[in-house]
Nucleic acid binder design. Structure first.
Length: 501
RNA sequence: CGGGGCGUGGCUCAGCCUGGUAGAGCGCUGCGUUCGGGACGCAGAGGUCGGAGGUUCAAAUCCUCUCGCCCCGACCA
């Protein structure tokens, strides 16, 4: 049987990743639009779950949603020197409007006086409007979030992880003091950390980026870094202390209580559809997508099993009743009553789509007043087969709830254990190189670094590993002095090295 | 932007070397039998072989140009 097959992770991790996305019907390359993707309904449903929860967290921390234009005057981008430098190479530029037919072909018609760039991020245009809105210390803080699409003309793309267009949220805030802005930056970093751990079941490390990894235009960039199954790091969220850089560039000022005009202190922070890639590479397996229950668009798939019409009627009646009961508990339930597929084929399909719990209901179960439940990742039974649980119909909702809750915790613990098992402390250059030797080898390495960009670049050139972050207090090993793994110069604390996505 | 690979029904590909007018598997449609871990039979639909030009009696096949996609590198959430 030539089934839709998923390349095993052990054979080709990159291919596996693409196969999981295809088999799970999450997305597909747009092809007709270079570097872009189509997020299919199942993938978009995951994004909607993420959005809903993040949005709730943003509102709970006092932010309001707003929307700014997709197109940004070219001159805006040039107002902050670091910022232009960072994005110049990857912005799409709109230079014309209108079309006309020439020799049967459509060609552009009117050239714009000033071209627009398609937003690669919105600091500049939001800075412009902040300048209009902010005049007094009484106007501060301004706490805005925008859900938007972004375009960065990427040379090489990977679905969800890096596409030319992607979806994200970008928070933009303005404050009266650097202290307040800094609090905001760290507050939102913690919101991201909590979201990653509680909703995505993905452990993360909070830290600060080095100068070379910093957001273009920021004073400092904070991040959360997660480990993927292949030992590489993935930046799952960033929170920037923009200082007064954009305030000065866009003349965003306010009069303080002493009547003195000052530039505001700004922050920005973002998470994107890249998180779906993170989700895939954190939990999924050779059988396809694995979703934590809290982000699963479908919690329970019910597969009825029957031969005769009489059995079908009995089984479906129970299936529908069970579905209705579970829906009352707030779960999303799919009763798969398709005639053209055998039960086994349905099992594989729902597994590939990452549905956490499958219920099988057949005539024998109906007679006994039970349903057979199987978790997406189940312990093996005595025969080496994935365990199925016979659950009584009464109290089923509560039991399923416990299963889902346990599964969410299991995924987090498993991811944490994977990270623990692939995290090492390295003391010398030989060992450091050995960890990253070979194209596909990566771990999290805590090592000392002398703090210079030169050394960082040398390490990257030699091993492809980069400094993912300088950990915040409480993350990683306790600070202790040492010597740089590459140069032997003094170092105050270890930093996190890894290859990354 | 450099290196490599590939464009043939919806998908994966064979055919190309050695020109003769297009095939397989999967998928799809219909009917019947099936149904507790990827069902089977029968009957069907579906392709100007990425595009343009050239060679030739004749081009998916040979030549030239072009476009696109994928993989690897440099850059990046």
């Amino acid at each position: 049987m030539a089934q839709e097959s998923i390349t095993p992770r052990s054979k080709d991790y990159a291919q596996w990743y693409q196969d999981v996305i295809a088999a799970g019907e999450l997305a597909e390359p747009a092809l007709v639009v270079k570097g872009c993707m189509v997020i299919r309904p199942h993938g978009y449903a995951v994004w909607e779950k993420m959005q809903a929860d993040l949005d709730r967290r943003f509102k709970a921390t006092g932010h309001q949603n707003a929307y700014f234009p997709l197109l940004i005057p070219l001159s805006f981008l040039a107002k902050e020197a670091q910022h232009v430098e960072g994005f110049a190479m990857e912005v799409g530029v709109v230079t014309h409007t209108g079309l006309r037919a020439v020799d049967g072909k459509l060609v552009v018609k009117n050239e714009l006086e000033e071209p627009y760039v398609i937003r690669p991020t919105s600091e500049t245009i939001i800075g412009h409007f902040f300048a209009k809105w902010i005049d007094s210390w009484r106007d501060l803080p301004v706490l805005i979030n925008q859900w938007a699409n972004i375009m960065r003309w990427e040379l090489r793309t990977r679905m969800f992880l890096r596409t030319s267009e992607f979806l994200w949220q970008e928070g933009h805030t303005a404050h009266a003091t650097h202290g307040e802005a800094r609090e905001e930056v760290l507050r939102m970093l913690d919101v991201y950390r909590d979201f990653a751990q509680d909703m995505m079941a993905m452990p993360v490390i909070r830290g600060v980026k080095t100068a070379s990894e910093r957001f273009a235009g920021a004073l400092e960039t904070f991040c959360i870094e997660a480990m993927m199954q292949d030992g590489r790091a993935l930046q799952a969220g960033t929170s920037h202390d923009l200082g007064q850089n954009f305030g000065k560039a866009f003349n965003v000022t306010f009069q303080n209580q002493a009547g003195v005009r000052e530039h505001v202190w700004q922050t920005s922070w973002g998470m994107s559809t890249r998180l779906i890639g993170a989700l895939i590479m954190t939990h999924s397996d050779d059988g396809g997508l694995v979703l934590p229950p809290k982000l699963a668009p479908i919690h329970v798939a019910i597969v009825p099993i029957y031969k005769s019409d009489e059995e079908k009627a009995r089984v479906l009646a129970v299936a529908d009743r069970v579905a209705a009961e579970l829906r009352d508990d707030g779960l999303v339930v799919k009763v798969d009553d398709r005639e053209e597929l055998k039960p086994g084929a349905k099992y594989y399909e729902w597994e590939k789509k990452g549905v956490p719990v499958r219920l099988e209901i057949g005539p024998r179960d109906v007679d006994q007043g039970v349903v057979m439940a199987k978790l997406r990742i189940a312990p093996l039974d005595a025969n080496g087969k994935p365990q199925k649980l016979a659950l009584k119909l009464e109290g089923l909702g509560a039991e399923i709830g416990r299963l889902l809750d346990g599964f969410q915790k299991f995924l987090y613990q498993r991811a944490l254990e994977l990270r623990r098992a692939n995290t090492v402390q390295v003391e010398n250059w030989q060992d450091f190189q050995a960890v990253f030797a070979g194209e596909n080898n990566s771990k999290f390495v805590w090592a000392h670094w002398d703090g210079t960009s030169e050394t960082e670049a040398e390490i990257k050139a030699a091993t492809k590993a980069t400094i993912r972050c300088i950990p915040l207090d409480g993350e990683g090993p306790a600070p202790e002095a040492g010597v740089c793994v590459k140069t032997g110069k003094p170092s105050a604390r270890r930093v996190l090295f890894s290859k990354n996505y």
